[in-house]
Amino acid sequence: MRRLNPSLVAGGVIVGVIVATALLSFVWTPYDATFVDPSVRLATPSWAHWFGTDKFGRDVLSQIMVGSRTTLFVGVVAVGVAAVIGVPLGVLAAMTPRWPSELIMRTNDLLLAFPALLLAIMFGAVFGASTLTAMVAIGIASVPSFARVIRSGALQVMRTEYVLAARAAGRKPFPIALRHVLPNVTSLVTVQASVSFAIAVLAEAALSFLGYGTPPPTPSWGRMLQESQEFLFSAPRLAVFPGIAIALAVLGFNLLGDGLRDRFDPKLEDRR
């Protein structure tokens, strides 16, 4: 019997709780997350409002619960877009001869130099501001870092003798990419995905603040953090709760990524 990997368990539990919270928020929250109650503005935590209320008197716990939906959405879309484009691009850059590879990587550098937020704002202006357009833009902006990391990993795999042996046996480039390169760079993909996830959550916060992310009444952890800025000294809890939520989410996905990487690494499979 294989021993369960602790980071897989911890990551799974944290991500599981976030997913459960998001699902629960569809059917129940303590208060309507968007309900404004001027009588309890900036209330401290109490039995009525466990996490207190914000400057409009909205319940923070309810907002966090509903906000988890935005966070999951953000993570899946942004990381998905980045990985689906970035991973093949990186592998392609590693496997093509000199000049096409150079072309891919220099284009990549160009995109890397382009501010992600500016790209998101452009997208928002063209396609209309929404969480989806913002996150597609953030995803596209994360493509270069994916491509770069995956390319360096794929280059290492391409230099191994097992790839040489596969070529000597007549394997064509595409099957080599599929059979040998991709399985051996998956650990890099999971690590990069958890980094990109953290960046996406924070970028969503900034974009919401600028009015190009999640439109105002829909709660989002990022915007809660942003709105708490003016009360950082008078009511730091407004920053603490969404801050903890974001940190937990990032940690959870990181642990899950690590755990999955180890789980699928045959070298660690029978570790005593």
């Binding site: 003798e161 040489l164 042996a165 000597a168 046996a169 040998h180 399985p183 045959p266 070298k267």
Partner: peptide
């Protein structure tokens, strides 16, 4: 050539795909 000529390499660590 791919059928008739085969290679054995030096490094027993890197000559086999660890995931297969």
């Amino acid at each position: 050539l791919r059928e008739n000529l085969q290679l054995v390499f030096q490094d027993p660590m890197s000559s086999l795909d660890p995931r297969m």
